[in-house]
Simulated assay, not measured.
Amino acid sequence: MRVLGRVTSINVRKVLWALEEMGLAYEREDWGLPLADPNVPEFLARNPNGQVPVLIDGDFSMWESNAILVYLAEKDVSGALLPTDLRSRGHVLQWLGWQATELNPPWGYAVNALLRRNPDYSDHAQIDASVARWTGKMGILEAALAKGEGFIVGADFTIADIALGLSCHRWFMTPFDKPVMPATEDYYQRLRGRPAGARWMGQETP
């Protein structure tokens, strides 16, 4: 399999982490600015949105990182990362959707301002608003993890933990005063204890 995308992308790292958890061989090609502009015919033929990652599996290709996670988990014959039980599976998909639609959007301004130091994001009111919204969503995650079941959907590690783990990494790497969230901190450190988690949640890839 081939993965098109730069490792500085959190969404690319989701896919790479999953592939490594499953022991699936892959090759990665640098795409995405500033390395390689995806808005060229070659890339747009694979993903008309011009976004990374793209997964290529033989004569099949697809985009959208969380959909790729589901595809890979289904491809893995061990079934380790996506439960077959309907209710547990539903909760995995629930948290994948929440990560993409509820948790990620609030952090945009704060991450650009405080982590990436982008001078175009210097409005303090917008930074504060972004941090407040982000903190509220992380509070939802903290409450879920505080139930003490081990991972986000019970005792077993799933693809939802890959997506949420990388989101936690971005939270802890962004410099601002944060409320204490002990369940989230414990969860994050345990995910970083996994070999693939440690690789894709390093200091150099926030």
Score class of each variant (00 low, 15 high):
Leu93Tyr: 03
Leu93Gln: 10
Leu93Asp: 08
Leu93His: 04
Leu93Cys: 00
Gln94Glu: 13
Gln94Thr: 12
Leu96Thr: 09
Gly97Thr: 11
Gly97Cys: 09
Trp98Pro: 10
Trp98Met: 11
Gln99Ile: 04
Gln99His: 14
Gln99Tyr: 02
Ala100Lys: 08
Thr101Phe: 06
Thr101His: 10
Glu102Phe: 08
Leu103Tyr: 00
Leu103Cys: 08
Asn104His: 13
Asn104Val: 13
Pro105Trp: 11
Pro105Gly: 06
Pro105His: 06
Pro105Ile: 11
Pro105Asn: 02
Pro105Thr: 03
Trp107Lys: 15
Trp107Arg: 14
Trp107Ile: 15
Gly108Leu: 11
Gly108Lys: 03
Ala110Asn: 04
Ala110Asp: 00
Ala110Val: 03
Val111Tyr: 00
Asn112Val: 00
Ala113Met: 08
Ala113Ile: 03
Ala113Val: 05
Leu114Ser: 04
Leu114Val: 09
Leu114Ala: 06
Leu115His: 02
Leu115Ile: 01
Arg116Cys: 01
Arg116Asp: 00
Arg116Ile: 02
Arg117Lys: 14
Arg117Phe: 03
Arg117Pro: 00
Arg117Met: 05
Asn118Arg: 08
Asn118Met: 07
Pro119Asp: 02
Pro119Met: 07
Asp120Arg: 14
Asp120Phe: 11
Asp120Ile: 06
Tyr121Asp: 01
Tyr121Lys: 10
Ser122Ile: 04
Asp123Ser: 11
Asp123Pro: 11
Asp123Ala: 09
Asp123Glu: 09
Asp123Leu: 10
Asp123Val: 11
Ala125His: 12
Ala125Val: 13
Gln126Asn: 12
Gln126Cys: 02
Ile127Pro: 08
Ile127Ser: 06
Asp128Gly: 11
Ser130Val: 07
Ser130His: 11
Val131Arg: 13
Ala132Met: 12
Ala132Glu: 14
Arg133Ala: 15
Arg133Leu: 15
Trp134Pro: 08
Trp134Asn: 10
Thr135Gln: 15
Gly136Trp: 12
Gly136Val: 08
Lys137Arg: 15
Met138Phe: 15
Met138Asp: 13
Met138Thr: 07
Gly139Ile: 04
Gly139Glu: 03
Ile140Asp: 14
Leu141Asn: 08
Leu141Phe: 02
Leu141His: 01
Leu141Tyr: 01
Leu141Glu: 09
Glu142Val: 04
Glu142Lys: 09
Glu142Cys: 05
Ala143Val: 01
Ala144Lys: 13
Leu145Phe: 05
Leu145Asp: 12
Ala146Met: 02
Ala146Cys: 07
Lys147Arg: 14
Gly148Glu: 10
Gly148Leu: 06
Gly148Trp: 01
Gly148Phe: 00
Gly148Ala: 06
Gly148Arg: 04
Glu149Phe: 14
Gly150Arg: 10
Gly150Thr: 04
Phe151Val: 02
Phe151Pro: 00
Phe151Ser: 07
Phe151Tyr: 15
Phe151Arg: 07
Val153Gly: 04
Val153Gln: 06
Gly154Pro: 05
Gly154Glu: 05
Gly154Cys: 06
Gly154Asn: 01
Ala155Gly: 14
Asp156Phe: 00
Asp156Leu: 02
Phe157Glu: 13
Phe157Tyr: 15
Thr158Trp: 03
Thr158Met: 05
Ile159Glu: 00
Ile159Leu: 09
Ala160Tyr: 03
Ala160Ser: 10
Ala160His: 03
Ala160Thr: 11
Ala160Val: 12
Asp161Ile: 07
